[in-house]
Each structure stands twice: as structure tokens, then as C-alpha cells.
Nucleic acid binder design. Structure first.
Lengths: 184, 184
DNA sequence: GGATAAGATGAGTGGCGACTCAGGTAAGCA
DNA sequence: TGCTTACCTGAGTCGCCACTCATCTTATCC
């Protein structure tokens, strides 16, 4: 999920702490947004403040690592839908899942933020595959392009975050978007 | 645009300063987001820090006053479209304008934030009028409800903010949404 | 023009949060 | 088992920022 295998592998306790910190950070930032304090993360991870900074020299690094992990999970999810799912519904299924996930777990904030260009590109590629398959199956209008889908994805996730939508409102809102994508 | 006429009217210089502060705040928060400092607002308004706090006891009050003003402008714009515009295109025209405005001027962030319940309700009402007119003109599917339109509005504005869309991308993205709303 | 009080000023104050470091602890290894 | 050193600790530093207040200025009114 992380650790691109540096020179020496992390010591066992360090690995445990790193994982605890990331888990705590996910919860803390989900509740308090990106302005939540690293001190709170340390507290919840059951770790001293210095330990957080040993693993992530900067708060921004911590946020970035978090986002990277989340993005990779999402991308993996999309990739699976793109190979095993029904071509006609895979794209819609993916958007639906991501919006639900975003609403449940506020951390996906700033999902498409700037400094993750690598992971974002991977996601965009997988979404592109989902789109192509849907178009080949005749389920989505052919003139729709990948960047519109990404923009729509971003928009609906952001919307689901800031407004606190009911399940019903979410479904009806996505239904409008899906109708806009669908070939008649 | 503001001042619900309290007991005594503001002194002339105080009125000028209040206006300068709001104008500066709009620029500052547009550039730096809601985390920009009130000190910077004071500096740009050419006013001492204390003066800002005399007019707005709290940073939150300042933000709220700003949002209220902006919302009122937007609502007035919508209201005009709802009376003088073409019923079939008024709603689409309004969404398009608001998204453009949001992209150009980041301040509309958190447009639909919590503590503005009054002004937001007015906007929602006017949007409801635009929607009804469009539906009566046969331009929008009859089962679409006001809250979906508001949710879509919020989403696309947020999207236009965080992603930095090109004009072309914005048009294509909105086109998808509009197609989803439109009756065939 | 002079009195009066609303308003402006700007050097504080307090608190918070990101980040540091000197010293202690225990993994990993022979 | 003992050594080495990566790692952890947590009190402390530093800077920033919202907010205050004693003092000065000036709009308003007669």
C-alpha cells in the first residue's frame, strides 16, 4: 500500500507506528477536515508528536501519503470493475460507489488535488477504460470524453461532501448525471 | 446591499471603511480561501486591524457578511431571469452564469454553507421558480425536483473551483448535466 | 467654532499548532 | 548477552493569527 522499499526496511515497531499513524490520520482528517492538528493524530495513534514527524516530516507529507493510499484503493476498485464488471454499467457503478464512499468518509476531500499527479493519472486511465467499455456497449454517448467524466466525478464528490445529502437526494442527483451520459 | 438600518446610521467615514473592508475581504478570501488572515484584509483595505473588528466582531461574522452579500447578488440575478428571461432556457442560463462566476471569483466557496439559512432559502425559492417555468415550457423533465437542481448547482460550482477547468471542459461538463435535466 | 462621542489606531496579549531536539528505550544482530 | 543505532519521547521553541484596549482623531450637531 505504501513504502516504495527504501534502502533499509523499517524496523518492526516503526512499521507498526506508521500504520497506526495513517489509520488515526484517516479518522482525524475525516472528522475535522485538513485543518485538524497533527497533535490530535498523534494522540489518537497513541504515539508521541515527534514520532509523527519522524515518519512524515511535514503535515503536507502526511496528507499526501493518506491521499495516495486512498487513491490507490479507489483505482484498484475501478480496475476490477473494468475487467470483471458489466461493461454497460461499470462506469455508473464506480461513480456511485465513489460518491457514497466520499460522503461516508470525508477524507476524500481534495481527492484530485495538485501534488498527486502520478496516482491521479492512473485513476484517470482506469476511468477512461470504464468509459470506453461503456461506449462500446452502447450505454454511453460516444462524444463524451474522459475529462468530462473526471470533472463530473470530482463535482459530485465535492457536492456530496459539502452538502450533507440524504441517500435519496444522492440517488436522484446521480440519476440526472447518468441520464446526461447515457445514450438513448 | 447590507445594513438593515440599525438604531443610528453609521458615520460617513465608518460607512466608507465598511465598504472598503468588504471589498478587500472579497479579493483576499478569493485568493487565499477562508484561511486567509484578517490582518491581510485590513492591510488591503488600508485600515487598522482594530477597525475590521469594530465592524465585524469575529472573522466568522466577516465571512458571513461577505457570503450574504454575494448570495443576494446571485439571487437577484436569478430573480431577473425568472421574470424576464426565456422560460425554456432561464434555468440553464442561470447555472451557467453561476458556474462561470464561481470559477472566476473563488469566493463563492462554501456558498451553501450552514449559517446562511435565510438567504439560501431565498435562492432555493428563486431556483424553484426557474425550474417550474422550464418544466411548464416542456424544457425540463417533470420529475426533477428543486433539491436535485440545488445539489447539481452546488456540485458543479465546487467542481469548477477545485479543478481548474478550461472553458471548453466547463461547457462540455455542463452540457452533460443539462442533457440529464432536459426532456427529450 | 467647540463640545461630544463614534470611530480609528496599532502595539499588545493569549492561544494554538507545526516542528525540534536532547535524552531515553528497545529492536536487530553477532 | 551485549552492543549498536534506529526509533521513540515529550517538553519546549517559534511564528502566526484572532482578538483587545488605551489613546488619539474627527464627523456631527448646536
Amino acid at each position: 500500500m505504501s513504502r516504495p522499499s527504501q534502502a533499509r526496511p523499517l524496523r518492526a515497531d516503526a512499521q507498526r507506528n506508521r500504520a497506526k499513524i495513517l489509520a488515526a490520520a484517516e479518522r482525524v482528517f475525516a472528522e475535522g477536515g485538513p485543518d485538524a492538528s497533527t497533535g490530535e493524530v498523534a494522540r489518537r495513534a497513541g504515539v508521541a508528536a515527534g514520532t509523527v514527524f519522524r515518519h512524515f516530516p511535514t503535515k503536507a507529507d502526511l496528507l499526501q501519503a493518506l491521499m495516495k493510499d486512498l487513491l490507490e484503493q479507489v483505482t484498484a476498485d475501478a480496475a476490477e470493475l473494468a475487467t470483471t464488471g458489466d461493461p454497460a454499467t461499470g462506469l455508473f457503478e464506480f461513480v456511485d460507489r465513489l460518491v457514497r464512499r466520499t460522503a461516508a468518509n470525508r477524507t476524500v476531500v481534495g481527492l484530485l488535488a495538485v501534488p498527486l499527479s502520478g496516482p491521479i493519472t492512473s485513476l484517470a486511465e482506469v476511468v477512461g477504460r470504464l468509459l470506453t467499455r461503456a461506449q462500446e456497449a452502447g450505454a454511453v454517448r460516444p462524444e463524451v470524453r474522459r475529462d468530462e467524466v473526471m470533472a463530473l466525478l470530482e463535482s459530485t464528490c465535492q457536492g456530496a461532501l459539502s452538502g450533507n445529502w440524504t441517500d435519496d437526494l444522492r440517488d436522484r442527483t446521480l440519476a440526472v448525471v447518468f441520464r446526461g451520459l447515457r445514450a438513448e
